[in-house]
Design a protein around this nucleic acid. Sequence first.
DNA 1: ACCTGAACACCGTTCAAGT
DNA 2: ACCTGAACACCGTTCAAGT
Lengths: 211, 211
Amino acid sequence: MPTPALRVRRKPSRDYHHGDLKAALIAAATRILRDKGPDALTLRAVAAATGVTATATYRHFPDRRGLIAAVAEQGFRALHEALLRGIRVSPGRLGLKQVAIAYVRFAHEHPAVYRVMFGAEVADGSDLPVLRSTARSVLDFVAQGIAQLQAVGLVRPTDPMRMAAVTWASLHGLAMLSLDGQAQGGASSVDDLVEEMTQVMMFGMAPRPGS
Amino acid sequence: MPTPALRVRRKPSRDYHHGDLKAALIAAATRILRDKGPDALTLRAVAAATGVTATATYRHFPDRRGLIAAVAEQGFRALHEALLRGIRVSPGRLGLKQVAIAYVRFAHEHPAVYRVMFGAEVADGSDLPVLRSTARSVLDFVAQGIAQLQAVGLVRPTDPMRMAAVTWASLHGLAMLSLDGQAQGGASSVDDLVEEMTQVMMFGMAPRPGS
DNA sequence: ACCTGAACACCGTTCAAGT
DNA sequence: ACCTGAACACCGTTCAAGT
């Protein structure tokens, strides 16, 4: 996950002022989450890894939850980009399958971040409007794909937003259960399940015979 | 959620020995989770609410995670029962829809417990075999339903376990996104989404025209 | 404007001790 | 066998102070 520079400072007096502490804290938090798990994701640990004291973080985030929300936010952006890359590989007919593969792959490549994105800590996002809109952009991306499939007659022409929500839910559920190791029923691998899910969704959303 | 007596004691010397502390702790934890949220679910708070010291809990659970796992375990049992009641209302043709309604309703009635059931804290259940098998029983329940739908020709006869995993994933994803408030796209209510999801799944899993 | 250092009220977990 | 009480190393957060 790339760490975009979130703001530009003109005179970074490097003695005890950090160049871009906010971005550095988010990056450190993401690294700790990946390497040591969610229990190790403490404000103090993140601050120490970045070379500042814990109290310095309060200049950039309202509290620990704010930092975690920023990590989740970056996660949604990275997911969005991964899906864009997925659809670019093979647009059109196989669109949903490629997106589904990219989606589940992202979850497996960033399991801890993915869990944080949908975790209880940021579940009530009513006070985190930026996080909500970033998550929303993933739903919008799926809705655009649905609209395209409707345009070529592969999905029946009902509310694309509703179809997108149903599709996203399917992808999210599959990603989660496979992360938890609860999705391998018989001899089915995760790839098999993604394939099956894609087929079921495409057939299920297809125009009905009698219309 | 009922609290089954987990063991019977013959001589409960009531002075400072608790009758069934383990069950009482799980019940208190569930109550705290519901009333005050996951942040308030500390070992000390649970112990205090039960009238014992924090250290007393270590006689019944290996650690805080063990208590949380027990809460999740009871959650999966309650979910299983809720699904059984759901199918009993209207078996047969409308089976999946009733199960879907019961599933999402359970998540909305016990949001905090539902999150714990799929939360990061018990995600790696390799050391929690009882929790895993309790969760597994939900998957098995869904698989049985799929097998019945296959028997009457409403679902095509492929690996029922794989179909069950895909179905469970859809239900779980929908439950989660609706809990997070991220599933309301257009004017669709959660009930609309459950309805749509059920239809998409039933059509998607139906026998293919050319077979 | 940005960061430090001391302090406060917590937390999970341990260990020895009590009945 | 079951529980208490003191103690340890942590944690998020505050507040005043330093540059």
